[in-house]
Design a protein around this nucleic acid. Structure first.
Lengths: 349, 349
DNA sequence: CTGTTAGCGCATTCAA
DNA sequence: TTGAATGCGCTAACAG
C-alpha cells in the first residue's frame, strides 16, 4: 500500500518554460526588441543588445522551435525516404544528405519505408503537414502521381533514382549502364578478351541495365557476344556461387568475370577458388557496389562504386538550393557516373 | 535581357494553405468541432462527422504540424545522436530505433555527431528547443554534466553505452566482457585449449574489456594465461594481419584465435591462409561485431554479435515508454548480452 | 453534442 | 531605434 509514493523519486520537475516575454521583462525591453536582437535583424542599440543577451543567458532561455516554425513557415528540417536504412547503400546515402543538411543548419528526418508504398505515402504526408521543408525520396515506387501531388503542394522535393518522364522535380540519377561498361572495359583493357558475366535476377531493371552495358562494352572492343559466357544469379552470394558452377560446367574457357554485384562476385570467387582456379591469375573478377566486404575478401575485390554517399550529397545540395531559392527555378537533373575501384581481384600478371 | 522571364516556367504556385477554419466553414460547423472530429475526441454527431470528413477531403486539408506542436507541447519526434552514421553499427542502431518509433507514430531525427562533442551539444540543444520530445544518445562523450543539464530541462533522454554512475537517465548497455567470454568459451568448448588472442589498440576501453573476458574465460576453463599467445592490432584488417605475423614468429603453437573485432579477424585469417594454415582445421577463428563481411568471407567467420539493432530497439522502447508516461518514473537500466554466431571458421573436425 | 474564445511562443507590421 | 498589437493554425476549457 505504498503505491502513493512510487515513481516520485525521480519525478520530472517541470522547468517553467522561459519565453521571450520573460527575457523581455528581465531586460526591461519589449518582446519585439528581444526577437529582433535574437535574430540579428534591423539596427538595435548596443546597450539594449547587451541587456537582452544577458537576460537570455541568465534565464537560460532557448527559443521554441514550434512557435518559430508556425510564424516563419519554415521548419529547417528535411526528410530522407529510403527503402531500408539497414542496407549499407542507403545508410551511406543518408550520411551524404546529413552532412549537406547539417552544413546548412538543417536537421534530417529519416524514414525507412521498408519498400512499402503506404509508408512512403505517409512520409510524404509529413511533408505536406509542413513538418519538413522538403524531402529527398529514394525509391522504386515513386509514381508520377505521387510526386505530382506533392509537387503541387508547393513543397520542394528531390528524387534519387529513376523517375517517370516529365516529372517536374529535381532528380539525381546514376548511369548504371556506364558502370557495367567500366567494369568490362577494365577487364578487356588488361588483355582478357573472354569475359564471363554473372548477371542478376532476369526480368529486373538492374539485370537489363547491366546486360546492356556488358554487350556495349564487348561490341566496342570488337568481341562477339557469346551467351555461353553468361549466367544469372539472384544477387546473393549463393547465387553467384552457383552461377559459376554452371559456367564451369559448360567448359567454355573464360579469363575474366564481371558480376552484377559484389555479393555475387564474392560467391563467384569462392567457387572459382574451390575449383582451384586462381583469382586473378587465371580469372580476373570485377563486382559492382563496393560493399565493405569487397575491401576485406581474399583477394580484395575490384568493383564499380555506385557512389551512394555522393548521390545523397548531391541530392541534398539540390534540395537545399531549391529551399533557399524559395522553391522556384527549373527542375535540376544530375547524372552521376559510377567509379571503378581497382583492387587485387583484377590485377594483371 | 530576358532575365525577367527566367525561372518562371516551373514557378511554385503557392497553394493557399487550407486551414481548419476553411474546413469548418465548408462543413458548416465551428473550428472546435472540426478539431474534435479530426482527433476522434469526445462524442461527435455522426452526421457532423461525415460533413467534416467530406470537407477535409474536398479541400485537401492537411493539419499543420507546427501549430499542433505549439499547442500540444508535443512534436511526436525523437532524435538519435550517433558518432557516425556511415558506420554499419550505428546504421543498424538507427534501424532499431526507427522501427520502434514508427510503430508509435513518432518520427526520427538523425544526428551524426562525427564524434564531435560540440555537435552533440548542438543536437541536445535541439532537444531543449523542444524540436523533439526526447533523444537517444549513443556516444563516448556523454559527460555527466551534459546529461544532467538536459535531464533538468525535463526532457526524456536515453543513453546507449557507458554512463557515469549516478546519472538519472534511462540507459542501455552491453556486457562486452561477457561477449569476449562467449567467444573463448566456444573455442575451448570445441576442444581447443591453446587459444591465441588478437586484441585491439592497447589503452582503449574495448581493449581492457576484451582482455578481461579472455582471461576470465581461460581461468574458468582451467587454462593458464600465456602472454605469448597475445598480440595487439589497431582494429583494422591490416592490424589483424600483422598481429598474426608476430604470433607466428614466436613459433608458440596455437589451435584457436580470438580477435577483438571482425576486421582484424578477417586480416588474421588471411595471414593464416597465406602461411598454409588451414582455417578452421588447424586454427579456429572467432571475431566480434558480426559485420556484413563476416558472412561473406572464406571461410565464413564465427563471431559475437553486439546486437546494435536490438540495442537501438530497446532504447527506443525505453524512451517511448517514458514519453507516454509523462517522463516520470525511475530511470531504467537494461544490459544486453552479446550473442555468439557460429559459422565455418570455428567448425570442428 | 456543439459554438465561442483564449492562448501556445514568436515575428512583424505599424506607430511613436 | 523601440513598443504595442496582430495573427500564424490549432487545441482545450468553458458555455450553451
Amino acid at each position: 500500500m505504498y503505491a502513493g509514493r512510487m515513481n516520485r523519486t525521480h519525478a520530472v520537475q517541470k522547468v517553467p518554460h522561459v519565453t521571450i516575454a520573460d527575457v523581455a521583462e528581465r531586460a526591461g525591453v519589449s518582446v519585439g526588441t528581444v526577437s529582433r536582437v535574437l535574430n540579428n535583424v534591423e539596427n538595435t542599440g548596443a546597450d539594449v543588445r547587451l541587456r537582452v543577451r544577458g537576460a537570455v543567458e541568465a534565464l537560460g532561455y532557448v527559443p521554441n522551435h514550434a512557435a518559430r516554425s508556425l510564424k516563419r513557415r519554415l521548419t529547417m528540417q528535411i526528410a530522407l525516404v529510403v527503402p531500408d536504412l539497414g542496407n549499407p547503400v542507403y545508410a551511406q546515402m543518408a550520411v551524404g544528405v546529413q552532412r549537406e543538411a547539417a552544413a546548412s543548419g538543417y536537421h534530417l528526418t529519416l524514414v525507412s519505408s521498408g519498400g512499402d508504398w503506404s509508408e512512403e505515402r505517409l512520409a510524404l504526408q509529413s511533408l505536406e503537414e509542413r513538418q519538413v521543408d522538403g524531402a529527398i525520396v529514394c525509391s522504386l515506387n515513386v509514381t508520377q502521381n505521387l510526386v505530382r501531388s506533392v509537387a503541387e503542394h508547393a513543397s520542394s522535393i528531390c528524387v534519387i533514382g529513376a523517375l517517370p518522364l516529365d516529372c517536374p522535380v529535381d532528380n539525381v540519377r546514376l548511369d548504371s549502364v556506364r558502370g557495367a561498361e567500366l567494369a568490362v572495359e577494365h577487364l578487356v583493357g588488361s588483355g582478357r578478351r573472354r569475359v564471363g558475366f554473372v548477371n542478376g535476377t532476369p526480368g529486373t531493371v538492374p539485370h537489363e541495365v547491366r546486360d546492356r552495358g556488358y554487350r556495349q562494352a564487348l561490341a566496342r572492343a570488337g568481341i562477339a557476344y557469346d551467351e555461353r559466357w553468361v549466367a544469372s544469379g539472384d544477387f546473393t552470394m549463393t547465387g553467384g556461387y552457383e552461377a559459376v558452377d554452371r559456367l564451369l560446367d559448360t567448359r567454355v574457357p573464360f579469363e575474366a568475370l564481371f558480376c552484377a554485384n559484389d555479393m555475387m562476385a564474392l560467391g563467384a570467387m569462392r567457387r572459382l577458388q574451390e575449383s582451384g582456379v586462381s583469382v586473378p591469375r587465371q580469372v580476373a573478377v570485377v563486382g559492382m557496389d563496393d560493399i565493405e566486404a569487397a575491401r576485406m575478401s581474399t583477394p580484395t575485390l575490384t568493383t564499380v562504386s555506385l557512389l551512394a554517399r555522393e548521390r545523397g550529397r548531391i541530392a541534398g545540395e539540390l534540395l537545399l538550393r531549391r529551399l533557399s531559392g524559395g522553391g522556384a527555378g527549373e527542375p535540376q537533373k544530375v547524372t552521376v557516373l559510377p567509379k571503378l575501384i581497382t583492387r587485387e581481384s583484377s590485377a594483371v600478371g
